Simulated scan of single mutants.
Amino acid sequence: MKNIQLIAAAAILLCSCSATKTIGPVADLNGEWDIVKVDGKAIDTTKTEFRPTLGFETAKNNVFGCAGCNSIMGTARVNKDKQTIDFSEIGSTLMLCANMEYEQQILDALRKVKAYKDGGEGLVDLTNGRGKTVLTLKKQ
């Protein structure tokens, strides 16, 4: 009887361990993220006025952040099941800063975003319609 109980316990333990290794959808996008790469190149924050960020309130379809100088705001419709994003009606303020090296690159990349995927090591990749990563985010 003890052997059957041990075998049953071992089977339950093995099943529960394998279930935690199943890779599902990317973590919830809600909250604030640092933009750490644009078009595969690391962002040097010494060349930005402010840290480039994106924030999501998916229940309200809101996106907000900073492109390095100007504030970003608009609508982001996130489909968690399909891991898609529709940035409709997105815009930014129009300030001029001393250093705007990444500003236009980030705004151009945002216009291309169609989906998102796990970037590994706590990162999320925002991808274009062909699946190419255009922005990489790291949770704050």
Rank of each mutant, 00 (worst) to 15 (best):
G68F: 00
D39I: 11
V134G: 01
K132M: 15
Y116C: 01
K60I: 14
K21S: 11
A67Q: 07
R51L: 11
K114M: 12
G131T: 09
I90A: 08
T22C: 15
N62H: 15
D44W: 05
C17D: 14
A19R: 04
M95F: 04
N128T: 05
I43D: 00
T136P: 00
L6Q: 08
L137M: 10
F50T: 06
A42V: 07
K47A: 07
L14Y: 12
C69N: 06
E103Q: 12
G91M: 14
N62A: 15
L29V: 04
D86S: 09
T133L: 10
E103W: 07
N62R: 13
W33K: 06
N70L: 08
A76L: 03
I72H: 00
N70F: 00
Q83W: 00
T48Y: 01
D125G: 04
E32T: 14
L13N: 09
Q140E: 13
L110M: 09
T46L: 13
K41Y: 04
A10D: 11
M100A: 02
L29M: 07
T46C: 04
T46H: 03
K114R: 11
T127N: 05
Q105Y: 05
V26T: 09
G68W: 02
S71H: 06
L137G: 06
P52M: 01
D28W: 07
N61A: 11
Q140V: 13
A98I: 10
D39N: 07
L54C: 04
T84F: 02
Q5M: 13
G74K: 03
L54F: 04
G91L: 12
G40Y: 10
F50R: 14
L96C: 13
C17T: 15
N128F: 06
L110K: 02
N70G: 13
S71N: 13
L54V: 08
D81A: 13
Q140I: 13
G40A: 03
S71W: 01
M95E: 12
S16F: 11
G65C: 03
A11M: 11
G55Q: 01
G120I: 01
D86Q: 14
Q5S: 15
L123G: 03
